[in-house]
Amino acid sequence: MISLKSIEFAYPQQANLFQGIDLEIISGSLFGLLGPNGAGKTTLIALMTGQLKPCAGEIHIQGLDYRHDRKRILSNLAVAPQDYAFYPQLTARENLDFFSNLYPQIGAQRKARIQEALELTGLQDQARKPARQFSGGLKRRLNLAISLLNRPAILFLDEPTVGIDPQSRHFILQAIRDLNRSGTTILYTSHYMEEVEQLCDRVAIIDHGRILAHDGINEILNKPARLQITFDTPTDSTSLPASLKALLQKTGFEYANGCLSGLPRDTHAIHELLKLLEAEKLKIQQITYGRQTLESLFFELTQTHLRD
């Protein structure tokens, strides 16, 4: 389990980024961390992987603390960063050979582990090619392969499918599923909501250094959906027909700026409302109703304005 308690962090000459973050990621989960650019996702990963030290609070990885067990923690986790963090002048095999040598626990199994990483990422045929000659998809796969060398118990993947072709993306997503099935805890960040929806079993949405939502993916998506009816000609709430006012009071629906919205109790309630609107001859411009998507929740929580 990864546990963050009351984490505070600030970069030098920058306002506090995190002011008391709490987060728990249970072992074996495939956890999606979402947030707009600059929300603090990469910083949070850097804190969890010991690259940065929190100003306050506690981080425990599988019950261990970086202050006392740094080497042990780092031996059992791996990071595939957003950047192509390897040596483009070296071949894929030379890169894997170098990084595998940095894990003392691999020892005599080094060659086997390199072969395993190459097979898991489908790079066997490219092993002798310098990495600088790789396409974006191959580079992403090599980035992932390096993080598999120590068979990590926890794997941090920071936007592992950004900027690649659909085939490589499919391949990487399948590899992530397989790794998770084999027991690896995975923390995954992405801007592709549908990817997270398909892949992750738990999700947290983060923005401005705060966790805005943190739950199982099904719990988030199965929350009751809102019915929203927009009228063609917006009228003041006081000039609504009396029958409609009475229905609103009965169902708990709200009316504002020509838009009526609420959580219908059942389909009968929806049917009754539409019948009444037809009888009162109120022209409808748009009706929205259905299962919540991660994207709609993301926009609801983080707003839709542009970010840097």
Binding site: G50, Q51, S75, P81, Y84, L102, Y103
Partner: peptide
């Protein structure tokens, strides 16, 4: 610039 140095800081060395 490529983040390799940051990655190396996550290795037990």
């Amino acid at each position: 610039q490529q983040g390799t140095l940051q990655r190396l800081s996550t290795f037990p060395i």
